[in-house]
Each structure stands twice: as C-alpha cells, then as structure tokens.
Amino acid sequence: MTDLFRTIISYISILAIPLMIAVFLIWGFLKKVKVYEVFVEGAKDGFNTAIRIIPYLVAMLFAIGIFRASGAMDVLTAVIAPVTNLIGMPPETLPMALMRPLSGSGSLGIMTELMKTHGPDSFIGVLVSTLYQSSETTFYILAVYFGSVSIKNTRHAVPVGLLADLAGMLAAVFICRILFGI
C-alpha cells in the first residue's frame, strides 16, 4: 500500500516539472501569448529578487553559523532535556529538534549521525527521520521570503513559525511512540 503510494508520488514528482513547462508554454502559445517575449519579461526580475535577499540571508546565516560553531547547542540541550524527558522524548534526539528550524544542513548531519549510531529502524532512528520531515528550516525561510520583499518588521511570523515547529515536534514524538513505542 505504502509502496504503491510511494511509486505514484515519485512518478508525479519526476514528471511535474517537464509537464508544467510543456503545459504552460503550449497553452500560452495556443492562447496567442508571445511566449518568448513574455518569458523574458518575467525572468528579468530573477536577478533583483536574488540580490535583494543577500543582506537578510547574511544576517541570519552568520548568527546561526556562530551558534553552531560555539557548541551552545549542548548547553541548550542540557537546559531543555528535563522538560522533553517528561513527554518521553529520548534526549539524544533533542539537538535534532532544536537544530531543525535553524539549519537544514546542520539537522541533516545530526539525523545521519543518530541513525548511524542507533540504527535507522530503532525508535530513535524513526523518530529523528520523522522530526526532520515534520518541519522546515523556519528561520532560513523567514529570512529568504521576507528578505525578497524587504520586510524588516516580521510581526507574529516568528512566534507562529516556532509554535508550528513545536507542534510538529510533539506530533512526531506522539505518533512514533504510539506506532513504534518503547
């Protein structure tokens, strides 16, 4: 059942982009849109948008970078671990949950390491895989998306993002404990 689902979705993923290109351009041509000219017109903005992100991305990534390099994650983990122990979350997986909103490559590294040590099919292995996929790199997305339209006052975006991450973490622990519980 899951295999069939997986096969179907992976086919869709592979076909999606060629299909979109074909449909957009052919449909446009049939609707008498000057496809080449319109494409170039739209593409012009690509450069400016990408360049506009740079200061926001530098500010965000440098802070996350020095946070990772300083080893502050160990300290933060030690502080929070007593709380997460209460909901039955193994302390080994806490750095993963804390790193996820900050850094994609950082959390990928932690996930790989934990699966190598504890085995991918162990409770910890399944939990870190789920934790990794239960959320996105919130701070990176905030920097890139808001940066692209020069927004400095993010209002409630950060608390919303963090609440969503927290919910994802709790849901991951909950579902993994029920299905693969110890």
């Binding site: 739209g42 903005d45 450069f47 530098v58």
Partner: peptide
Amino acid sequence: FANIAVEIAIGLIGVMALWLGLIKVAEEA
C-alpha cells in the same frame, strides 16, 4: 556563513529567472 549566504542567493538567480518567466507565461495564458 556570510559567504554561504551570498552563494545561496547567487545560486537562486538562475532558477528564479526560469520560474518567474514560466509563471508569467502561465498568467498571460
């Protein structure tokens, strides 16, 4: 990480342009 940030942004230019172009066509159509 300051360098990585710039690399990421520069790396976006190409795909940005590609998708903005395609979407513009889809909008007009």
